[in-house]
Design a binder for these strands. Sequence first.
DNA 1: GAGCGCATGTAAGCTGTTACATGATTCT
DNA 2: AGAATCATGTAACAGCTTACATGCGCTC
Lengths: 168, 168
Amino acid sequence: MSLRIALLGLLAAKGPASGYDLAKLFEGSLNHVWQAGHTQIYPELVRMAADGLLAVEAEGARGRKIYTIADEGSRQLHDWLADREPAVTVRSETALQAFLLPILDTDEAIAAVERVKARAQKRLDDLKCLPPVADNPKFGKYALRLGLAQTRATIEWADETLHALRTK
Amino acid sequence: MSLRIALLGLLAAKGPASGYDLAKLFEGSLNHVWQAGHTQIYPELVRMAADGLLAVEAEGARGRKIYTIADEGSRQLHDWLADREPAVTVRSETALQAFLLPILDTDEAIAAVERVKARAQKRLDDLKCLPPVADNPKFGKYALRLGLAQTRATIEWADETLHALRTK
DNA sequence: GAGCGCATGTAAGCTGTTACATGATTCT
DNA sequence: AGAATCATGTAACAGCTTACATGCGCTC
C-alpha cells in the first residue's frame, strides 16, 4: 500500500514519468524514507494503471511507458496523507544490536557501538547532500529534517553509550 | 534472519522458555525494536531446532515445548552481534507522510503533524514504563535509551515543523 | 560490429500478516 | 456446565529480495 503512495507522490511532485525514472527518483530522494527496487516498481505500476490510479500517457521505444497520475490516484494520495494514522512497524537491526549489547563483553560492545556511530555519521553526511526532488525543493524538505534529527539522536546515543561502556 | 537473533537473544537473557513465553516476552520487551507474532515465532522455533540452534529441553502438557539455546545458537548469536554490519532498510510511514506534506494545504498538514506528535508522545510514555526483561535490567537498557532519544527527536521535529507551518 | 550502459521485465524464494482452527485449563 | 483465556498451531496471502533474461541505442 505505502509503495503505491510513494509512487503517486513522486508522480505528483515530478509529473509524468516512466518506471525507470521513478526507480531513479526513488533511489535519489525517498531512499531514507522508503525503499523499493525496480523489480518491485514495474509490476506495481502496471497494477496501479489497471486499478485506474494512473494513466499511460505515452508509449515510446522499447516498451517505455510514461505514466501520469489519474484523478482517482490524486484522490487516494490526498486521503491517505490527510487521514491515515501511520503504522509503526519498527524493524531495526541497529536497535536489536543495542538491545542485546550486554551479551558482548565490554570491548566487543564498544566496537559495535563505534560501528553504529560511524554509520550514522555517514548517513548524516549523505542526507546533507541529497539533491532536491525534481527541482522542487518543497518535497522531501520535512522528511529530510526528520531524518537529520533522528540520525543526530542516534549519534548522541552512541556517544553516551560509549562513555558508559568505557567508564565501567 | 534477525528474527532468529531476536529469539536467541531472548533465550539467552531469560533461559529456557516455550513458544508462548517467547511471544509474550517479544511483545513486552522487543516490541519497540522488532516485531513478530506467535504465528511467525512457532514455526521459526521448529526450524531453529531442526538447524541445531535450539534444543527441546522438555515437552509438557498440550504439546508445550521448552526450548533451550544450544551451543551453535550461542555461537551464531555472538557472531551476529560482534560482526554484523546492521542492515538499514527504512520503511517509515511517518517519514513518508513528512516527505509528501507539501501536497496538503496548511491546515491539513498541521493536523497531520499534530497526529505524528501525539503518537510520538504516547510512545515516549509507553517506553518509560516498559518492564525489565526477565528481571534482568541490563537487557534492553541501551535499546530503550536509543528509542527514547529517537522519539524525543521526532517530537522536536514535530514542534519545529508546526512552528514553520503556522508562521507562513 | 562489438561492447557497454540504458530500460524493462519475469520468476523463485523468503519474510511477515491475517484469518482460521483447536484443545486445555481456569474461573464463575 | 459454560465462558473466558491459555497455548499451539496451519494456511492463504501480501510484500520484498535476489537472480536471471532480454533487447535497444549509443560509442568506439
